[in-house]
């Protein structure tokens, strides 16, 4: 693959992604012309206020409701697929995902506890659920990693994946037990677990955005090491990479990305699995390109899924987790099996 070809593909992808984002912001229950849309956006960014001739209602709908939602979907999709891409590389397992180490089950347990006990800390007003979900998600991952390091000094991939799975199932068990005991809240919990971008505002974006930027930057710095580590821990060690340390740090960063996404939007599957694989097929295995492209592809895919989730049955909403799985699963299967057949 020539450098030039890759550059062209990146440019096309970026344009496509921008187009999808605009589409996601524009489509919905009310129609807006591109001119008005850009008028509203520039009015807010420059602080001049909404241009004349645009109804204040349109302004609230697009600036306060739809834009943060679409951007949130984009960021979460990006965060999930980047962390998925890293996990697959770090654990040398094509089926590894952001959720392999139990972030989602931990976060769900945290959410369940908050919903059941109806706890609220005034300081966290409105952020209680995401905060607890995030903390519980991270605790689960840290627990899984420490267990793995205790059992296996080299922290081999098989150990990590197995412990992650066992811990996930265990934590899920606790959560199911709790939700059976307190069935009043099970519907709310179920809705939370299905994931949604509805009613997410700028305040959520403002927290997610810096976290994404910082985590992404750190992961980009380790992208070279990740390339080497995809050959296996032994080879990596031979080439001077401290596999264990890199693995632990990168996994924690990935979990941070996943944790914060799950905390804000619920458990949304498939994008973390599908997007990186598609990107690898298009751009090759180098993580310097795979990571940013995963972000773009994952983000665009999620923005598109959210668009579908809110428009297909409007005014009803389909949980976005269901949409990603419905579209993602067959697509992923296609990509996976198509490449197998070629190999055979």
């Amino acid at each position: 693959m020539t450098k030039k070809g890759t550059g062209l593909k990146i440019a096309i992808s970026a344009i496509l992604c921008f187009f999808i984002l605009i589409l996601a912001i524009r489509q919905g229950s009310v129609y807006i012309s591109l001119k008005d849309l850009f008028g509203i956006i520039s009015g807010h960014i420059t602080g001049k206020g909404t241009p004349e001739g645009i109804e204040p209602m349109m302004d609230s709908i697009f600036w306060t409701i739809r834009m943060p939602r679409a951007i949130m979907a984009f960021l979460v999709g990006g965060a999930l697929s980047v962390s998925g891409a890293c996990m697959q590389a770090l654990l040398q397992n094509p089926l590894a995902s952001s959720y392999t180490l139990g972030v989602s089950s931990g976060a769900s347990l945290g959410a369940a506890i908050v919903l059941i006990l109806e706890i609220s800390i005034p300081l966290l007003a409105g952020f209680m659920l995401p905060f607890t979900g995030f903390v519980f998600g991270l605790i689960t991952v840290v627990l899984a990693l420490s267990l793995a390091s205790v059992i296996d000094r080299n922290v081999s991939n098989t150990t990590v994946v197995l412990i992650g799975m066992i811990l996930s199932l265990f934590v899920n068990g606790i959560m199911n037990f709790l939700s059976t005991l307190y069935s009043d809240h099970s519907k709310q919990l179920y809705l939370w677990m299905m994931g949604s971008f509805s009613a997410r505002g700028w305040k959520h974006c403002l927290i997610l955005f810096p976290v994404c930027v910082v985590c992404f930057a750190i992961l980009m710095l380790t992208s070279r090491k990740m390339d080497i580590m995809s050959f296996g821990d032994l080879q990596a060690q031979a080439m001077g990479v401290d596999a264990k340390k890199t693995k632990l740090v990168a996994i924690v960063i990935c979990s941070l990305l996943t944790g914060i996404s799950v905390a804000f939007t619920g458990v949304i599957g498939f994008v973390d699995l599908a997007a990186p694989h598609v990107v690898r097929k298009l751009f090759g295995p180098s993580h310097r390109i795979v990571l940013p492209m995963s972000f773009i592809y994952g983000g665009a895919f999620m923005a598109l899924c959210d668009l579908i989730s809110r428009t297909v049955l409007s005014p009803r909403e389909i949980p976005v987790g269901a949409v990603t799985a419905l579209i993602g699963a067959p697509f992923f299967a296609y990509v996976f099996f198509a490449s197998r057949r070629k190999r055979a």
């Binding site: 229950s29 509805s198 809110r310 909403e317």
Partner: peptide, 9 residues
């Protein structure tokens, strides 16, 4: 169950 946007519209 309707979306916030539809309710505002």
């Amino acid at each position: 169950a309707v979306s916030v946007e539809d309710a505002i519209v």
